[in-house]
Measured scan of single mutants.
Amino acid sequence: KKRTSIEVSVKGVLETHFLKCPKPAAQEISSLADSLQLEKEVVRVWFCNRRQKEKR
């Protein structure tokens, strides 16, 4: 599977969401993915990776 490069503008939206809610529910991930025209899996993994980054 190819890596998905995420646009800077999209990263901004994801970051804003992350600050409000670092662990979104599946439904939130779905609606976020739809509005950003990304796959749900890509958004889910982004949040996973972002949470791990917080720990470091």
Score class of each variant (00 low, 15 high):
Leu38Lys: 05
Gln37Asp: 13
Pro24Ser: 05
Gly12Leu: 12
Glu15His: 01
Val13His: 07
Lys2Asn: 11
Lys20Ile: 05
Arg51Ile: 05
Glu39Lys: 05
Asp34Lys: 13
Cys48Trp: 11
Arg51Tyr: 10
Glu54Asn: 02
Val42Gly: 04
Ser9Phe: 08
Glu54Ala: 02
Gln27Trp: 08
Arg51Pro: 01
Asn49His: 06
Gln52Ala: 14
Lys11Leu: 06
Ala26Asn: 12
Phe47Thr: 01
Val45Asp: 15
Leu38Ser: 02
Thr16Trp: 08
Lys23Met: 14
Lys55Arg: 12
Trp46Val: 02
Gln27Leu: 08
Val10Gln: 10
Leu38Ala: 03
Glu28Leu: 08
Lys40Phe: 14
Lys20Thr: 11
Glu7Val: 08
Glu15Arg: 00
Pro24Lys: 05
Ala26Ser: 11
Val45Ala: 13
Pro22Met: 05
Val13Ile: 09
Lys23Pro: 03
Arg56His: 09
Val10Asp: 14
Cys48Leu: 11
Val10Cys: 06
Lys1Glu: 12
Ala25Trp: 02
Cys21Asn: 15
Val43Glu: 02
Leu36Tyr: 08
Glu7Lys: 15
His17Trp: 10
Arg3His: 09
Arg56Pro: 00
Leu36Asp: 09
Ser35Ile: 07
Lys11Met: 14
Glu28Pro: 08
Lys1Arg: 08
Lys1Cys: 08
Gln37Ser: 11
Leu19Glu: 07
Val42Asp: 14
Ser9Asp: 15
Ser5Thr: 14
Phe18Asp: 02
Asp34Gln: 10
Thr4Ser: 14
Pro22Gln: 14
Val45Asn: 15
Ala33Asn: 00
Pro24Glu: 03
Ser35Ala: 13
Val8Glu: 15
Phe18Ile: 01
Val45Gln: 14
Lys20Ser: 06
Lys2Gln: 04
Glu28Ile: 06
Trp46His: 04
Cys21Ser: 11
Ser35Asp: 13
Val43Asp: 04
His17Gln: 06
Arg3Thr: 14
Ala25Gln: 13
Gln52Gly: 08
Leu32Asn: 02
Pro22Ile: 04
Thr16Gln: 13
Gln52Pro: 03
Gln27Ser: 14
Cys21Thr: 08
Leu19Ser: 10
Cys48Met: 12
Ile6Val: 09
Lys11Val: 11
Lys40Thr: 14
Lys40Asp: 08
Asp34Glu: 10
Ile6Arg: 08
Lys23His: 14
Gln37Gly: 14
Arg50Leu: 00
Asn49Thr: 08
Leu14Lys: 04
Glu54Val: 04
Phe47His: 05
Val13Asn: 03
Lys53Ala: 11
Ile6Cys: 04
Val45Tyr: 07
Ser9Tyr: 10
Gln27Val: 07
Ser9Lys: 14
Lys11Ala: 15
His17Val: 12
Ser9Asn: 15
Lys11Asn: 12
Lys1Gly: 09
Ala33Cys: 03
Arg50Glu: 02
Gln52Thr: 08
Val10Asn: 09
Leu38Glu: 03
Glu41Ser: 07
Phe47Gln: 01
Leu19Val: 07
Ser35Gln: 14
Ser9Ile: 01
Ser31Thr: 13
Ile29Ser: 03
Gln37Arg: 10
Asn49Glu: 13
Val13Asp: 05
Arg50Gly: 02
Gln27Pro: 03
Glu15Ile: 07
Ala25Ser: 15
Arg56Gln: 04
Lys40Gln: 11
Lys55Gly: 07
Gln52Leu: 12
Glu39Asn: 11
Lys20Leu: 06
Ile6Thr: 10
Gln27His: 11
Val13Tyr: 08
Arg44Asp: 12
Ala25Pro: 08
Val8Gly: 15
Val43Cys: 02
Ile6Phe: 07
Val8Ala: 15
Ala26Tyr: 09
Ala26Val: 09
Lys55Cys: 12
Arg56Val: 12
Lys20His: 03
Thr16Tyr: 08
Ser30Met: 09
His17Cys: 06
Arg44Phe: 00
Ile29Met: 06
Ala33Asp: 00
Thr4Trp: 06
Ile29Glu: 03
Asn49Arg: 09
Lys40Trp: 05
Lys23Glu: 14
Gln37Ile: 11
Arg44Val: 01
Ala33Glu: 04
Val43Tyr: 05
Glu54His: 01
Glu41Lys: 05
Val43Phe: 05
Ile6Pro: 10
Leu32Glu: 04
Trp46Ile: 04
Lys1Asn: 07
Val8Asn: 15
Ser9Leu: 09
Asn49Pro: 03
Arg44Gln: 11
Cys21Ala: 03
Pro24Gly: 01
Ser5Tyr: 09
Phe47Lys: 00
Gln37Val: 00
Val13Arg: 09
Thr16Ala: 14
Val10Phe: 00
Pro22Arg: 07
Pro22His: 06
Glu28Arg: 03
Ser31Met: 13
His17Ala: 13
Gln27Thr: 08
Thr4Arg: 07
Glu28Ala: 04
Phe47Pro: 00
Gln52Asn: 15
Gln27Glu: 14
Leu14Phe: 01
Val10Thr: 10
Leu19Gly: 06
Glu54Phe: 01
Asn49Gly: 03
Gln27Ala: 13
Asp34Leu: 05
Glu54Ser: 04
Cys48Tyr: 10
Phe47Ser: 07
Ser30Arg: 10
Gln27Asn: 11
Ala25Lys: 12
Val45Trp: 08
Leu19His: 12
Lys2Trp: 02
Lys23Trp: 13
Arg56Ala: 11
Pro24Tyr: 00
Phe47Leu: 01
Leu14Thr: 05
Ala25Cys: 14
Arg44Trp: 04
Lys40Arg: 11
Ile29Pro: 00
Val43Ala: 03
Val42Trp: 08
Leu32Thr: 00
Val10Glu: 14
Leu19Arg: 09
Val8Phe: 06
Ile6Gln: 11
Glu15Lys: 03
Asp34Ile: 03
Asp34Trp: 02
Lys40Ser: 10
Glu54Gln: 09
Arg50Pro: 01
Glu54Tyr: 06
Leu19Cys: 07
Gln37Phe: 04
Cys21Asp: 13
Ile6Met: 14
Glu41Asn: 10
Glu41Asp: 13
Thr16Gly: 13
Leu32Phe: 01
Phe47Cys: 02
Ser30Asn: 10
Leu19Pro: 02
Gln52Tyr: 11
Arg3Gly: 13
Ala25Asn: 15
Asn49Cys: 04
Phe18Val: 05
Val8Thr: 15
Gln52Arg: 08
Cys48Arg: 13
Arg50Tyr: 05
Glu41Met: 00
Leu14Gly: 01
Ser31Val: 12
Leu14Asn: 05
Ile6Glu: 08
Val13Ala: 11
Thr16Leu: 08
Arg44Glu: 14
Ala33Gln: 04
Arg44Tyr: 04
Ser5Cys: 14
Phe47Glu: 01
Phe18Gly: 03
Gly12Tyr: 12
Gln37Cys: 10
Cys48Ser: 13
Leu38Cys: 04
Trp46Arg: 00
Pro24His: 04
Lys53Glu: 14
Ile6Leu: 12
Leu32Ser: 03
Ala26Gly: 07
Gln27Gly: 10
Gln52Lys: 09
Asp34Asn: 07
Trp46Ser: 03
Val43Ser: 01
Leu38Phe: 02
Lys2Gly: 07
Glu7Gly: 15
Gly12His: 14
Lys11Asp: 13
Phe18Lys: 06
Ser5Phe: 10
Val8Cys: 08
Lys23Leu: 10
Cys21Leu: 07
Ser31Asn: 14
Glu28Lys: 03
Thr4Asn: 10
Arg51Lys: 00
Ser35Gly: 04
Val8Tyr: 14
Arg3Leu: 15
Ile6Tyr: 04
Gln37Thr: 00
Lys11Thr: 11
Thr4Gln: 11
Cys21Phe: 04
Ala25Gly: 15
Lys1Tyr: 05
Leu32Met: 07
Arg44Asn: 13
Glu7Thr: 15
Thr16Glu: 15
Arg3Asn: 13
Glu39Ile: 06
Glu39Pro: 12
Val13Gln: 14
Lys40Leu: 07
Ser35Tyr: 07
Val8Gln: 15
Arg44Pro: 01
Cys21Arg: 03
Val10Lys: 11
Ser9Met: 07
Glu7Ser: 15
Pro24Arg: 07
Lys2Ala: 07
Ile6His: 11
Ala33Val: 00
Ser31Lys: 12
Glu28Cys: 05
Lys53Leu: 12
Ser9Arg: 11
Leu19Trp: 04
